[in-house]
């Protein structure tokens, strides 16, 4: 849907961009990544949006019936769960691979993202091929 990419607006001027109407679009960076992943996969034809939406509806309904008292609703958590279900169902990745990679990322030493002169060494684990 490249047509959408042609939709652009004055970034300044009397009618200011969307933020003049309210809050930030994404509360945390991972939310924007989760959003972007779904958009990009769908745009590339990897899945039908409706397929994703149906899973999102189910995830939201599940949360509503089963969450802990006092737990705050996180829309993008449901979004990510639904997305993961779609990509696993489509066999793009396995749930185990996501867990394993997430555990590797969790094991990064503190301060791993501070300073950019470290290259790839010193992490004690292999992220695989990042040549993209």
């Amino acid at each position: 849907m490249t047509a959408a990419l042609t939709v652009s607006l004055d970034v300044d001027g009397p009618a200011a961009p969307p933020r003049s109407n309210g809050e930030l679009v994404f509360a945390e960076p991972w939310e924007s990544r989760a959003f972007g992943l779904a958009m990009t996969l769908n745009e590339a034809g990897a899945f039908e949006w409706e397929e994703f939406r149906q899973r999102l509806i189910v995830r939201i309904a599940d949360w509503e019936t089963s969450h802990e008292p006092g737990e705050c609703f996180s829309y993008y958590r449901c979004w990510l769960d639904a997305l993961e279900q779609v990509v696993v169902a489509r066999e793009f990745v396995t749930a185990g691979a996501v867990q394993e990679r997430a555990a590797e990322l969790a094991a990064r030493p503190a301060g791993w993202d501070h300073g950019h002169d470290h290259g790839d060494h010193g992490h004690g684990h292999d992220h695989g091929d990042h040549d993209h």
Partner: peptide, 13 residues
Amino acid sequence: PIALRTEALEQLL
């Protein structure tokens, strides 16, 4: 943490 799960999924894809 969900941020890491998202990052993991992004890396793999």
